[in-house]
Amino acid sequence: MNESIALMLFSCATVLVAGYVRGYGGFGFSMITVAALSLFCAPAQVVPVVLLLEVAASLFLLPGIWRLVAWPLLRWLLTGVAVGTPVGVWMLGNVSPAPMKIAVAVIIFTLALMLRQGFEVNRRLKRPGTMAAGLVSGVLNGAAAIGGPPAILFFFSSPVGAAVSRASLVAFFLVTDILAGGFCVAAGLMTVGHARQAAILAIPMAAGLFLGKLAFIRTPETVFKKRVLLYLMMLSLLTLVRSAKPFLT
């Protein structure tokens, strides 16, 4: 099979799975897609496409959950994101792929492990802590389209509840991905070619989003969460091993 065809089939399958996860839990699309596609492509090739797909996914999901979004928390979180995103976009254009892949893998694994082990914050985070989480999210979102981990940890370790967390994350990703995409365009890192790739991958993503929305109603949250986090941990370990191999030889 031609390598380009095999890569496209792998990309479609990855986006389908990631779309399902995003449709159900409100998060995970970038983490899954970037981790998988970065096995074969440089982050600068993957990230712009993922940003475009993330915006489309949020627009698909947000109308039905708008009233559940925790807007007061989002305001301060997004303030931090606005500061951190330009730094992340600079890193995308100037940091070599291997170290960035290693950083992505470590972040994903650590987050997944903490959530799987039941990490919780039993008190409401104050404004500085919320802005700090947003700052880290902005840097990671601009650099590798994985701004979700700090925000996911922030919401799912707080007492606001699963439905509010899911809705707030959908709104969060819409704003952060539009912001990061704008910086990518300004930096010359997003091209018409990226838009074409995103348009093709939007088809399997839409199917995944639809199935994920149905599963959100039917599947116990704890079962889904443990399965997704385990998958993310395994995928991040694979990325870490492949990316660290050149430094070990």
Rank of each mutant, 00 (worst) to 15 (best):
L135C: 13
L135F: 13
V136M: 06
V136P: 03
V136C: 13
S137Y: 05
S137I: 14
G138R: 08
G138T: 15
G138Q: 11
G138L: 12
V139Q: 12
V139L: 13
V139P: 01
V139A: 08
V139R: 03
L140I: 12
L140E: 12
L140N: 05
L140A: 11
L140R: 06
N141D: 13
N141C: 14
G142E: 06
G142K: 03
G142H: 07
G142I: 09
A143I: 09
A143K: 04
A143R: 01
A143H: 06
A143N: 04
A143Q: 10
A144T: 01
A144I: 06
A144K: 07
A144E: 04
A144V: 06
A145Y: 00
A145E: 01
A145H: 01
A145I: 02
I146A: 08
I146G: 07
I146C: 13
G147K: 09
G147W: 00
G148C: 02
G148K: 06
P149F: 02
P150D: 10
P150N: 05
P150C: 10
P150G: 06
A151N: 01
A151E: 07
A151I: 09
A151D: 04
A151W: 07
A151G: 08
I152D: 03
I152A: 04
I152K: 04
L153H: 02
L153I: 05
L153Y: 02
L153R: 00
L153W: 07
F154M: 13
F154S: 10
F154V: 15
F154I: 03
F154Y: 12
F155K: 01
F155S: 11
F155I: 14
F155M: 15
F155V: 07
F156N: 02
F156T: 03
F156R: 02
F156M: 14
S157V: 02
S157R: 02
P159N: 15
P159Q: 14
P159C: 10
P159L: 13
V160D: 10
V160T: 15
V160A: 09
V160W: 11
V160F: 13
G161T: 09
G161M: 03
G161Q: 11
G161I: 14
G161F: 14
A162I: 11
A162E: 13
A162K: 08
A162H: 02
A162Q: 05
A162L: 10
A163L: 08
A163S: 13
A163W: 06
A163F: 06
A163V: 14
V164C: 15
V164R: 14
V164F: 10
V164L: 12
